[in-house]
Design a protein around this nucleic acid. Structure first.
Length: 205
DNA sequence: GCCAACGTTGGC
DNA sequence: GCCAACGTTGGC
């Protein structure tokens, strides 16, 4: 018999498989979980990359018109694929990364579903992708809107401590993507993880 | 299609 | 600023 067909869990990485959309026989077998909550990372502190400041913290989002911004510049296939799954009205944690005290700072919601990221076609943009074609854009983004700040900042260190405990006890944060897929800038959050993290908001640390 | 080299992310 | 982890690229 032929070799096992790989059982690609749900990585969605490197874009090698040219899409199995209309070829696959059993169309309905989306064995990937359907996520309804997300976590999105952004840097709240100034850092110059290619002559441009990449800083975009939650305070910067609040200053945007209607407190809405597009989430451009994502150049990772897994992260892009998660953005493609996002639906209007879904909630995400706004996470501050690459800063003194990384952690979850607030809540945002999806207000526009995935559409082509214009920066991939802009030669002057650091996220310019010469291999992306106008009629077949490689990179997509969503629009998000500020919802509210968390009642208290939930630092990564606290989540990590809980994650470690839950790995032993089987608690809700046992496989939180922040630790199992640390480098992903757009991550899925299960309902159980969301609810648990939300419950931390009211506990004093 | 393997895998070494390279580049990037992001915690510390 | 260091560097581990890991995604991406390209030679073979």
């Amino acid at each position: 018999m032929p070799p096992k067909k790989r059982q690609r869990k749900e990585k969605g990485s490197a874009e090698p498989a040219p899409k199995r959309t209309k070829t696959s026989k059993s169309t309905g077998t989306e064995d990937q979980p359907v996520y309804t909550h997300w976590l999105m990372k952004s840097e709240p502190e100034s850092r110059i990359e290619g002559g441009v400041d990449v800083k975009f913290g939650i305070e910067d989002l609040k200053k945007e018109e209607n407190q809405i911004s597009c989430w451009d510049g994502v150049r990772n296939y897994q992260a892009r694929n998660f953005m493609k799954q996002m639906k209007i009205g879904q909630l995400a944690f706004f996470y501050h990364s690459n800063c003194k005290v990384p952690g979850i700072v607030g809540i945002i919601k999806i207000v526009k579903e995935s559409y082509p990221d214009h920066t991939q076609f802009d030669k002057k943009d650091i996220h310019y992708d010469p291999k992306s074609k106008k009629d077949d854009p490689r990179w997509h983004m969503v629009d998000v809107q500020f919802v509210r700040m968390l009642k208290r900042y939930i630092p990564l260190s606290e989540l990590k401590e809980i994650h470690h405990k839950h790995k032993d006890s089987g608690g809700p944060l046992k496989s939180l993507a922040l630790f199992t897929r640390a480098r992903l800038s757009v991550q899925p959050i299960t309902k159980e993880e969301w609810d648990f993290i939300m419950s931390l908001e009211n506990k004093k640390q």
